[in-house]
C-alpha cells in the first residue's frame, strides 16, 4: 500500500474500493488523532473528533477533488470539527492557566509543576516535557495555536497550511513567529524556561 499515493487511494475509494478507505484510515489515524488532541486536549474527545472526521471522509468522499492533497482536505475537516467543539467547551467553562494552574508542587492538569528555577532540560522525561509544552500550546489564541500545531507538530508545509486556513503564506509565517514567541512568554510567565540564554 506504500506504493499508492493518498490521491490514488481516495480515487479507488470513490470507485467503491473498501480496502483503499481502510488504508487511508491506517495511514492517518495516528496523525489525525495527534493533531486533534493538540487542540482539544482530551483523549475521548480527540478520538470522537478523529472518528467523526473519518466518517465525513466516508460519507462525503465525492466532495474531494484534486488537485489539492487528500491530507489537506482531511485536516480541513478535522480542524473545523475541532474548533466547533472547542468553542462549545469554552462556552461551557473558561479554560485558562489561571483556572487550572496551581502553585508549585501541586497538580497542573495532572502534571507536577517543575521548580521555576529549573529549566526544562534533558533530565525531564520527553513525555513530561511534551505535556507541558502542549498544555501551553492549547492556551494560545486559536490563530497561533493552529499554525503551531500544523507546522511544528504535524510538520505540514507552509503551502498546505495556507490552503487549509485559507490565508496567505506570509500570514502563516507571521502567525508561527508570533505564536512561538507567545508560547515562550506564556511558559516563562508560569515559571517554565526553555534553556534560554
Amino acid at each position: 500500500m506504500d506504493q499508492l499515493s493518498d490521491e490514488q487511494l481516495i480515487k479507488l475509494f470513490q470507485d467503491g474500493n473498501e480496502g483503499a478507505y481502510v488504508q487511508l484510515v491506517n495511514n492517518y489515524k495516528d496523525r489525525l488523532y495527534n493533531f486533534l488532541y493538540g487542540i482539544i486536549r482530551d483523549v475521548a474527545s480527540a478520538e470522537d473528533l478523529a472518528q467523526e472526521t473519518f466518517l465525513k471522509v466516508f460519507t462525503h468522499k465525492d466532495s474531494y477533488k484534486g488537485p489539492y492533497k487528500f491530507s489537506t482536505w482531511m485536516y480541513t475537516i478535522g480542524k473545523n470539527l475541532a474548533f466547533t467543539e472547542l468553542r462549545k467547551i469554552k462556552r461551557r467553562k473558561t479554560r485558562s492557566f489561571s483556572d487550572i494552574e496551581k502553585t508549585k508542587g501541586e497538580d497542573w492538569g495532572g502534571m507536577q509543576i517543575p521548580d521555576p528555577t529549573d529549566p526544562i532540560d534533558d533530565e525531564m522525561s520527553n513525555e513530561e516535557k511534551s505535556r507541558i509544552i502542549q498544555k501551553g500550546i492549547c492556551q494560545l489564541p486559536e490563530d497561533f495555536m493552529i499554525v503551531i500545531i500544523f507546522r511544528d507538530i504535524q510538520e505540514l508545509s507552509y503551502e498546505d497550511i495556507s490552503t487549509i486556513l485559507e490565508v496567505p503564506i506570509g500570514t502563516v509565517k507571521s502567525r508561527i513567529n508570533r505564536g512561538r514567541e507567545k508560547l515562550r512568554q506564556l511558559l516563562k510567565e508560569k515559571g517554565i524556561y526553555l534553556n534560554e540564554s
Binding site: L32, Y37, I148, I153
Partner: peptide
C-alpha cells in the same frame, strides 16, 4: 527545537 521534539501520540 522543543516543539519539534514533542512526542507524537498514537490513536487509542
Amino acid at each position: 527545537k522543543e516543539l519539534s521534539n514533542i512526542e507524537n501520540l498514537h490513536a487509542p
